[in-house]
């Protein structure tokens, strides 16, 4: 039985038994190689669900839609490993009750797709610990290495080229499950810290602040990178910040529902090499 059929059956059963009120999954998109989110609230709608290696978006952001979980009913959601990590973060930051989320987990490698056993986020604890252990050895990225070998001036020019393209559409923010603030800092104008105009200066400020607010929280799902209409390689900044959190504070974002946010905690012996 294909994983698609298997998961459809499971989704149908969950809805039929009334265990969940909604299933968030993937369906066919505007072109054959795209997938879009599908929200099924009855067993009949489940047949629209598709599950294959093209299902890459992190759907966890829909769970924090205002009011969705306030009736304490459960919602099932299709999630890749990064998505499961986002659930941990959202729970750790008190944005949702993880017990209300039924995870339909899966993992892809190339065109292969394989199910991940479990339902509650706690069932995946061991799996995520393994992920974090593998991450430690494989965190280098050729483009980041290239950038780091440049002079600051060259790096500035690289980002100047990239950020000059930004049109401040805020699609990156909209697509990110971790950007759940009702009122984003760029929308606050008393005082206005960040230039809201889409000139290069304003774009630098916006992208720097967004990267900073996601440091140690980003799970590198790539939603923002794919959403960006002008293809700014946001993944590079996100990756660099994740490496920083890991190397400096041994923090792997989304390890557990009780993990302390890296910038809201500290150790008295945190490293400091640059303070005069």
């Amino acid at each position: 039985m294909s994983i698609e059929v298997q998961y459809r059956d499971r989704a149908k059963e969950l809805l039929a038994k009334g265990e969940v009120k909604l299933v968030i999954g993937y369906g066919g998109g505007s072109t054959p190689n795209r997938r879009r989110p599908v929200f099924a609230s009855s067993p009949e709608e489940v047949d629209r669900l598709v599950l294959d290696s093209l299902c890459i978006a992190n759907l966890s952001g829909y769970l924090v839609t205002e009011g969705l979980l306030s009736d304490e009913k459960k919602v099932a959601v299709f999630l890749r490993p990064e998505g499961i990590r986002s659930i941990n973060i959202l729970a750790a930051e008190n944005q949702l009750n993880a017990d209300q989320v039924v995870i339909l987990g899966f993992e892809t490698a190339g065109s292969d797709i394989r199910p991940l056993e479990g339902g509650n986020v706690l069932d995946f604890s061991e799996f995520i610990v393994t992920l974090s252990e593998n991450r430690v050895v494989s965190d280098s990225d050729p483009v980041i290495d290239k950038l780091e070998n440049m002079s600051a001036q060259e790096r500035f020019s690289f980002w100047q080229d990239e950020f000059s393209k930004c049109i401040k559409c805020y699609a990156c923010r909209q697509a990110c499950p971790m950007c759940y603030c009702r009122r984003c800092i760029v929308d606050c104008n008393q005082p206005q810290w960040i230039n809201t105009s889409a000139h290069t200066l304003g774009n630098f400020e916006w992208n720097i602040i967004r990267a900073f607010h996601l440091a140690g929280r980003c799970v590198e799902c790539g939603n923002c990178d794919r959403a960006c209409p002008v293809n700014i390689p946001l993944r590079l900044v996100n990756r660099r910040m994740a490496v920083e959190a890991l190397n400096s504070f041994d923090h792997f974002a989304g390890l557990s529902v009780t993990q302390e946010p890296v910038l809201a905690s500290f150790k008295k012996d945190d490293t400091e090499t640059f303070i005069l």
């Binding site: 990267a211 900073f212 910040m241 504070f249 910038l263 905690s265 500290f266 945190d270």
Partner: peptide, 9 residues
């Protein structure tokens, strides 16, 4: 902690 992260950013 904040400086550490912001500095590398």
């Amino acid at each position: 902690r904040r400086w550490m992260v912001f500095r590398s950013l």
